[in-house]
Structures are given as structure tokens and as C-alpha cells.
Amino acid sequence: MELKELFAKGKFVVTSEVGPPKGWQIEKTLEEAEILRGKVDAINVTDNQSSVMRFGALATCHFLKDRGFEPVFQITCRDRNRLALQSDILNAAAFGIENLLLLTGDHPLLGDHKDAKPVFDLDSVSLIHTVKKLEDGSDLAGNKLEGEPPKFCLGAVVSPCAEPLEPQLFKMEKKIKAGAEFFQTQAVYEVDKFVKFMEKVKNFGIPIMAGIVILKSVGMAKYMNENVAGVFVPDNLIEELKKDKEKTKSGQTGIEIAARLIKELKPYCQGIHLMPLGWNDKVPAILSQAGLI
């Protein structure tokens, strides 16, 4: 089911994500998805996440769909030009994939093939525009598509705690204008900032899912503070992680923080998106502690 229908019904939407393996045997990834069965509305599949070469997101989405999951196909502009992007989007339509999340993608210099050609033929805004054109029955160049045009629910991303925020806002507006139907955010740890962001985008009238990344360790929190754009883990959370090393190691602290954040954020947004980064087994606990299942 398209996520926008759930939003339309007023449901608080919960999604999580899986990352395909570096290899072709994808059973383990599918097992991770099984943990989420019945607990989330949809599962995102990342596209060569962090510019690290992996099994394809489209095929993974196909496998998930076959097994009765609702996949969200993430597409970045880093690796394909406009022809490849459009044909993959048509492939997705044929596989019955209904939800897309359209992003620019990390630069190849950040990944494991630093010497790769960064494509960025299109960017997130023009990619949304392109999908919209496909939905209207023609390709980007204006040629008519044969048969029924595809139908999707188009997601985009925004970074609500970025400094400065304004460039994010104007691009978000462009994405909406181009056809984005829901937004998923970068990881949120600062509820006040998020609330302020939501005030600013209220007028856009678009469903927003707050991003949640489970804090695995103090080191991870510090790393994100130093290196990850638009993410800041406040000191009190780092203190909390420091307090009981065993508890943090077992993931308990991370679960508690995530659940608490969800509870605090829930009144302000239309859904949450969990990014467990391999800790899918912790997701049910988070959701149950947050009172979502």
C-alpha cells in the first residue's frame, strides 16, 4: 500500500530499513526483514549506502515484495544517469513497488570506490520531477510512454536539525513543488529543534516522518557529532550512554533513548523512520517501549 494512503487515513506511519549485503546471497537481509514483519508499515531498502558497493536495492525490494512486505525503494543520483534512473523506476513499477525515496546520494569519495565517476546527472529535485513526468505518461525528454503510466508514492528527505536550516527549507519546498508526497528526516536527537522545524514547515502541509537512529555507543554518538551532517547528539544522551557500559553494549540504552525520542516526537510528526544500521533485532523492543505496537 502506498504510504500516502496511510497518511491520508491519519495513521502514524512507522518504517524501518534494511541494507542489502555485499554479496549476492540475500537470505540474511530477508531474515532481518522478517523481524520487522507486522511491526512496521514499510521497509526501506538503501541504495549503495554511504557509497559502498552492495547488492542492488531494486532486487532487494523485489524479494521483499514477493514475501509480502511493503518496500520503499531508495534511489540515489550518484551511480546512474537519467536513462538508467528512469528505467530502474519503470522496473520498480513492474515489480509492484509503490513507494520510492528519492535522494541525491553521498559522494563516491566517501565510500569504498573513491576513484569512481560521480554521476549526479540528475539531483534529488530533478529526479522527483522526472518520476512525476513518468507518472504523467512521458519520460524526461518528453517522449510518450507505452501503456499505463506508472504510479508511485514519492518520498524525499530533509535534514531538520541542520545548521543553517534555511537552505534545507528552500530545497524542501522545491522538492514539494516537484512532486514529493512525504518526507523522511535525518536522525533527530534534539526534540526542540525538530519542533521548531515542524513549525516552519507546517504550511507545506506534507507528512513528515522523523528519523531515528539507534545509538549503539558513545563512540558512535561522538563520531556522528563530528562527521554526520545535520546530526547532533546532545551531551545528556552521551552521558546516559556512558553511565552503564554494559547496558549500552547490550543495546538497552539505545532502545530506551530511541523509544523516548519517538514518544516525544510523536505529537509533532506524522510518522517515524527507524534507521537501525544492522540492529533490526532491537526494533520490536523500541516500538513496544514507545507504545507503537
Binding site: 563516491p108 573513491k114 576513484d115 569512481a116 565517476k117 560521480p118
Partner: peptide, 9 residues
């Protein structure tokens, strides 16, 4: 040898 572009350059 097969030659490859190194785009990081």
C-alpha cells in the same frame, strides 16, 4: 594492462 579512470584525481 586494462586502464581505469581514477575520478578522485
Amino acid at each position: 594492462v586494462i586502464k581505469l579512470r581514477d575520478y578522485s584525481k
